[in-house]
Amino acid sequence: MAQRLAMEYVNATMQMTEFQLNQFLLTADTSYISHRVKVLGAGEQEIVLEEAGGEEVHLSFERKGGIYMGSLSCRVVNPHLINAVRKLFFMYKGTGTVNRIYKDLTMMYYYEGGSVRRISEVRPGGTKLIYQHKYSVAEMLAVYKRQSVECEIEQLRQEINRLLDMRNRSQQEAVIKEVDERLAEAAVRLFRLEA
Rank of each mutant, 00 (worst) to 15 (best):
G53D: 10
R75C: 04
S31G: 06
A52N: 15
V122F: 05
S148P: 08
G53P: 01
G125I: 11
E173S: 10
L49G: 02
Q45C: 03
M14P: 00
Y68S: 05
M91F: 07
R169T: 11
I101G: 04
M107I: 15
S115H: 11
L72D: 01
M7C: 06
V137Y: 15
A174S: 13
N99C: 00
L25R: 07
E51C: 09
I119P: 02
V48P: 05
L190T: 02
Y92K: 02
K93A: 07
Q45L: 13
G65R: 05
G70P: 01
E194Q: 12
K134Q: 14
Q132P: 03
P124A: 04
L156S: 06
L21D: 04
Q3C: 03
K87W: 15
L81Q: 08
H133E: 04
I119R: 12
A28D: 09
E50F: 05
E18H: 08
Q171S: 12
V76W: 04
I160K: 09
G113Y: 06
E181V: 12
Y144I: 11
Y135I: 09
R123N: 13
R36Y: 11
D165E: 11
K134M: 13
V48Y: 08
R100C: 04
T17Q: 09
E185I: 08
E55H: 08
M91K: 11
E44Q: 12
E50V: 10
F61K: 01
A6P: 01
A174P: 02
S34T: 15
M140A: 03
C74Q: 02
T13F: 01
V76C: 04
I153W: 07
D29G: 01
A42Y: 15
L21A: 12
R123L: 15
Q172D: 15
V57N: 03
I67G: 00
V57K: 05
H58E: 11
R167M: 12
I101Q: 02
E18V: 07
I176R: 15
